[in-house]
Write a protein that binds this DNA or RNA. Structure first.
Lengths: 336, 336
DNA sequence: CTGAAAGCGCTAACAT
DNA sequence: ATGTTAGCGCTTTCAG
């Protein structure tokens, strides 16, 4: 069907090695280079990366396993990573595992069969069993948003504890003491960290933690709606609420609208991620913003490092912790 | 490195053909089947899809080329497609071309080198030159959101003209006559169709079209902000505005907030896509909703049809046009 | 039902 | 610098 190197060899009268050398940056006599390029043009030749992959045992393909593509945070990170990976000649196969451990494991097996050169994973299974086999093959893994005991690999994290601490302190500094939190799933690492930050900020301000002010959500829009409704209903004295991811922030705003609560007069709020959404809220929402683009580029960079330097980097594990930022809106009232 | 079929053959004492037959649904004697399965287990064997792809000239991989992964509409469609494709054993390589024709062409060439079995494309280049070579290879293409003259292939569309017509009629039916529109890029097909619907609704109601009420945006958030500001400034008498995609809808809400305009008292609005965002707006936004999940599943289905049936379907081109729906909020005022 | 052998398109010694 | 050749891991005739 498609033209092969053999066709080019025949057409130019050159040997296969010369053609291959041409494609791999070797030295080719000027005259022959021109002949080869003419042949490529006329035959519409395109390198067959599948054959190359079989031979070199490197597919120039990276597998990405994430909990939800439909989650803005994930989508933004993938956009950034794919951009830099493709510009280096790497393809990205994205697998959305729907926050399901079984699907996550299947995704990794799927990627192993396709012989990807590396896996980038925002892990759902905190045990990391799904990654063990891939790691034994000696191929690089980069984790996003959490480390896993027993999987020695690079990771790019965000300082989620501090992020939450900052947010709660922001409330406290403006006179709030009855501060609610809509947290994430208890088994999710980022959710644990954000919750820890909430505790820490309260404790260091000498404010007792009250269970009724804590809602464990599921990082979904509907979870945010529900969480807001419950917190408001159970805590008439609550003056502020911190929502710990974007989807739930959107849900909390929906809840606020549907209950007819006025922000910030009746309730102050700090949300998470997505500055544009925050701006579109009325009044503009104060949020904790993660450096998504920074994470994406960092992850891609770390992965490329492994791939291009091969054995060299094998020494120490890389692990960076990026900082978040509070972007002030008008959703937090200053109490007398 | 990893175990191969040869290893299994050696370990079981069987021939390669038997092992291959086992993997491809052929008949294998019960006793041998068990032996093979034991060997697979012990050797942690995983089929090498790369080698298989070289031999069969089919990679079980689909390329997807879209203008912006970071656009919710695209992200939702990809989520849905990837789900059904992977469940049929197909990998998806997503290429975000940043709404750039040159990058779009490069993406297709990239996918050709990787010998994908089919391409799904939400095209940026309306000429379709980027797809010609792939089509000549006899492999299937499915287009989303627009057809291209000269590229005979299946397509899944949305009735965008009717979508806009419905929205504008919704305004007219509630007494509005000075209706603005924040349109998309003039060269983009969906934007043309939505604009055409705007014209048609006005004309059939006998309302003259006024240029000052039309803003040509660029489908970005910032474009929406700008469009709203300009329309409001240039049209004091405007009572309603229709925004024609999600990003610009968000932008328009930002503009509304930043200008301190009250909805619907001072201005009525109908947005596009993303029901959840609409619910999070205060007051709840009335929107035109596209059946994203329906589109995603349809596209994947059509592609799989080609792939699994091979030559059979080559007859007629498939082209479905899905309907949108207006989801009422409280952002449209009824004029006396 | 199973074994032997050819070959998919490429790369990488090795020889010239 | 260029030609020759083996072989990556699999599928697929063709025999047996």
């Amino acid at each position: 069907m498609a033209a092969t190197m053999k066709d080019i060899a025949r057409r130019t009268g050159l040997g296969l090695a010369t053609i291959s050398s041409y494609f791999n940056g070797g030295n080719v006599r000027e005259k022959n280079r021109i002949k080869i390029e003419e042949a490529i043009e006329e035959l519409h030749y395109e390198v067959n990366e599948v054959a190359r992959g079989l031979k070199t045992n490197a597919t120039r393909t990276i597998g990405v396993v994430i909990p939800e593509l439909n989650n803005t945070f994930c989508a933004e990170i993938i956009t950034g990573m794919e951009d830099v990976l493709r510009s280096h000649g790497y393809a990205t196969i994205v697998c959305d595992c729907r926050t399901d451990k079984k699907l996550e494991r299947e995704a990794v097996e799927f990627l192993i069969r396709r012989r990807v050169d590396g896996i980038i994973n925002m892990p759902v299974d905190e045990e990391g069993n799904h990654l063990k086999r891939f790691q034994k093959m000696g191929k690089p893994i980069v984790l996003i948003d959490r480390k896993i005991q027993g999987i020695d690999c690079d990771s790019v994290l965000v300082d989620n504890k501090k992020a939450a601490e900052d947010a709660v302190r922001y409330f406290i500094g403006r006179g709030h003491r009855n501060i609610g939190i809509i947290g994430g799933p208890e088994e999710v690492f980022t959710a644990q960290e954000r919750m820890a930050g909430y505790y820490k900020a309260l404790e260091s301000a000498g404010i007792p933690v009250r269970e009724s002010l804590i809602w464990h959500g599921d990082y979904t829009i509907q979870g945010g709606v529900r969480g807001l409704e419950e917190l408001v209903q159970n805590n008439p004295e609550m003056t502020a609420v911190f929502v710990t991811n974007y989807e739930m922030t959107m849900g909390a705003m929906i809840g606020v609208n549907e209950l007819g609560i006025r922000i910030p007069e009746q309730l102050s709020m700090i949300g998470f991620d997505n500055l544009q959404f925050a701006r579109a809220c009325n009044p503009k929402l104060t949020i904790v913003a993660q450096p998504t683009d920074g994470i994406a580029r960092e992850v891609a960079k770390v992965m490329l490092n492994h791939l291009e330097n091969a054995g060299e980097t094998s020494g120490e594990l890389f692990s960076e912790k990026l900082e978040t930022e509070i972007i002030a809106g008008k959703s937090v009232r200053v109490l007398a």
